[in-house]
């Protein structure tokens, strides 16, 4: 989805502004949102990419004006409504109006002690198409659904730097389709390729790219195309 969460390369957001005094949660409600999100995630109502998509699909103006945990809260409300766990009327009322339709296995104290990122690594359905050193071109995709291929890196030439295993494919996981493990690569692009000659000649950027988002880059054919344009 081409929306405001995909910020790489945009101008106009101003200085970074590191904080002198950092705390993990700047107000108690932010910690509460984080814990609710975690506990709700435990119910397995959506995938991690489904959760990301809920936040990325907030209206752009809302996304930009809401704080980080406010966005999480809005994404969470949206996800719970869609999953049929909480009704819009209940959110408006601020209390439960109906009992839960099932008895879910919920997060317990023992699960907290063991909080960690789940592994998305899966057995490979097929051998990897690319190997380190291969030249590739990212596809020019513009799906209305979730993708982890940022806009600034679409239709660009890069080099496979490493194979990172076979992982749940974000695009299909986000829309609730069956788990669809795909090879994941580190692909490196020159600054020149991404941004043109201006910014920084000594810059390179890499992304994690899934195999379906990559095509083998055929240098000879590319040259031919350019010649015919001239």
């Amino acid at each position: 989805m081409n929306s405001i969460h995909d910020m790489g390369g945009m101008h106009g957001f101003g200085p970074i502004g590191p904080e002198a005094d950092e705390t993990v949660f700047h107000s108690p409600w932010k910690g509460r949102v984080m814990s609710l999100y975690r506990a709700a995630g435990f119910l397995r109502l959506w995938t991690i990419d489904g959760g990301r998509a809920m936040i990325a699909s907030l209206p752009p103006a809302t996304y930009l004006t809401a704080s980080y945990y406010a966005r999480w809260l809005m994404g969470l409300e949206r996800g719970l409504e869609r999953a049929g766990v909480v009704g819009a009327d209940e959110i408006a009322a601020g209390r439960s109006l109906r009992p839960a339709h099932s008895r879910p296995r919920i997060m317990t104290a023992a699960n907290v002690a063991n909080i960690r990122r789940s592994s998305f690594e899966h057995p490979a359905p097929a051998p990897a198409r690319f190997k380190p050193g291969d030249r590739v071109r990212t596809l020019n995709l513009n799906p209305k659904t979730h993708t982890r291929l940022p806009r600034y890196a679409r239709g660009k030439e890069g080099v496979i730097e490493a194979i990172r295993g076979c992982h749940v494919f974000s695009d299909t996981a986000a829309i609730g389709a069956a788990e669809d493990p795909r090879w994941l690569y580190t692909v490196e692009f020159s600054g020149l390729q991404l941004w043109g000659a201006d910014p920084d000649p000594a810059l390179s950027v890499s992304i994690g790219a899934f195999e379906p988002d990559l095509a083998r880059h055929e240098r000879a054919r590319h040259r031919l195309c350019r010649d015919s344009v001239r």
Binding site: L149, R164, L184, A202, V205, S206, I207, G208, A209, F210
Partner: peptide
Amino acid sequence: RIRVWDSTAAT
């Protein structure tokens, strides 16, 4: 050289 790593996927 500056190498920027954009954490776009599981890594």
